[in-house]
Amino acid sequence: MINVQAICGFGVGSSTLLRIKLQKVFDELGVEAKVTTNDVTSATGNDCDVIFTSEELGEMLKQRVKIPVIIVKNFVDSNEIKTKVTEYLENRTEV
């Protein structure tokens, strides 16, 4: 089970949209994952395996958390999200 966090400014708007999209992609790929949302201020990276967020917030988070921070440009583009998730999964198994 992979713990995934979708993050935006308040953890209720765009992150919820991203969570719905991410969960769908993980389900389609047959990868067991639990996607939750969080706001950028409370996110510590200690309670999940990977973070998906926007470019602006991603740069902030990368300085603070030790886990992978994956930047999504278009929160509603299933293809982009699928590519990013696949890349993450590939890099993950290499470790």
Binding site: C8, G9, L17, T53, S54, E56, L57, N74, F75, V76
Partner: peptide
């Protein structure tokens, strides 16, 4: 929120 977190609300 936009001033603080940047224009990420432009989601697509």
């Amino acid at each position: 929120a936009v001033e603080e977190f940047g224009p990420y609300i432009a989601i697509a």
